[in-house]
Design a protein around this nucleic acid. Structure first.
Lengths: 174, 174
DNA sequence: CATTACTTTCAGTATAGACTGAATATACAG
DNA sequence: CTGTATATTCAGTCTATACTGAAAGTAATG
C-alpha cells in the first residue's frame, strides 16, 4: 500500500470536511478524493488501509459513489478484486452530482410548493399573504430549474466560454 | 399563540428536511420557514411553542439566521420582547446565503488547491499526474467564482431576464 | 465440490452535533 | 433599587447517523 503524500493528505482531509458541510458523508467524500488523485484504480482493501476505515465502510461508500456515477469498478489483469477509479472530468463530475441533487431536492420542493398552493384554503385567515409567499418561492425554484435546463443543453466547455462573454451578456440584458 | 395551518406545517417540515440535506440545522431551517410564512414578526417564545422546541434552541437558531442576514429583530409598540421577521425577497435571501457559503466553503477550497499546487514536490512519484488533477479542480472552482462574480453584479430581476434570453445566448456561444 | 479470495449485509456501538433546562446575564418598570 | 420580564449561555443528555467487525453471501480456482 502506498503511503499518502502530504499534498494528498491535505486534499483528502479538506474534501472530506467540505463534503460534510454539503450533506455528504465524510468517508464518501474522502474516498472520492483519494480516487480522484490516484493515477491507478484501487482495490477496496487498499482504500480502507490508506484512510484507516473499516473495509465494510468502504464497500458502502463506494456503492454510494457508484450510484452518483462518478466512480466505477474496473478490472486488473491477474487480480480477482474489483478496483475502483474516479471519473477525471471535473465538469462532468459536478454536472452529474448537480443533476441528481436537483432531482432529489429541488424537484420535490417544487412539488411541495405546488401542493401547498393547491391545498391553500382561501377562507383561512391570511391566505392571500401565504399565497404570495409560496408563489414567490415557487417562482424562484422554477427559475433555478430553468437555469439548470439551459446549462444541461450546453456542451462541455461552453459554460466556460459563456463566462468569458459575461460582460457583454450583462450589457445586453441590462 | 396561533396554531399552524396544514399548509404551514407542510412547508415548515419540508423546509427543515431540505435544510438538513444541505448542512443546515433542521430547527434553523424550520424557524426560517415559519417566519417566512408569517405575516407578522414573532417573539421567540411563540416560535418555541409553535415548533415545540426549547426557548434556548430558538435563541441560538435565530442568532444564526441573523448572521446570515435573512432574519432580523423588530420592535412592537408596548412589548418589551424582540420580535423576529424574515426577509421576504426570495432572490435576495438566496443571494445572501450563496454569497456567504461561497466565502466559507468555495474560497477556502480554492485556497487549499493553491496551497496543494504550491506544496507539490516535483520529485515525488506521480507529481505530474497530481498536478493535472489539482489544476483541473482549481480551474473549476475559479470558474464557479467567476460565475458568482458575474451574477453578483447583476441587479435583481436581471437573472430572470437572462434566463428568458437563454436560447439566444446559447446560440451565440455555440 | 472444497477451498480460498473477495464482497456485502447487518446488528450493535460510537460519536458528532442538536437540543434541553437550569443557571446566569441583561434590561426594563415601578 | 428591587422585582420582573426577557434573552443568552452552557453543562449535560439525547439522537441520528456513521462506523465497525463478525457473519453470511458470492464467485473464482484447483
Amino acid at each position: 500500500m502506498a503511503e499518502l503524500t502530504g499534498v494528498q493528505k491535505q486534499y483528502i482531509l479538506h474534501w472530506g470536511e467540505m463534503g460534510t458541510r454539503w450533506g455528504i458523508n465524510r468517508t464518501v467524500a474522502q474516498i472520492h478524493a483519494l480516487l480522484y488523485l490516484s493515477p491507478r484504480a484501487l482495490p477496496a482493501e487498499e482504500i480502507a488501509e490508506t484512510l484507516s476505515v473499516a473495509r465494510s465502510n468502504v464497500s458502502t461508500s463506494i456503492r454510494e459513489l457508484e450510484t452518483w456515477g462518478i466512480v466505477r469498478a474496473v478490472h486488473v489483469l491477474g487480480d480477482r478484486r474489483e478496483h475502483y477509479e474516479s471519473m477525471k472530468d471535473v465538469w462532468e463530475m459536478f454536472r452529474l452530482v448537480i443533476e441528481q441533487r436537483k432531482r432529489r431536492e429541488i424537484d420535490p420542493t417544487r412539488e411541495m410548493l405546488r401542493q401547498c398552493l393547491a391545498n391553500l384554503d382561501p377562507k383561512e385567515p391570511g391566505a392571500d399573504f401565504t399565497r404570495d409567499r409560496l408563489a414567490a418561492m415557487a417562482g424562484f425554484f422554477e427559475a433555478v430549474t430553468e437555469l439548470h435546463d439551459q446549462m444541461k443543453r450546453l456542451p462541455t466547455g461552453t459554460v466556460r466560454k459563456l463566462l468569458r462573454m459575461g460582460t457583454k451578456v450583462r450589457k445586453k440584458a441590462g
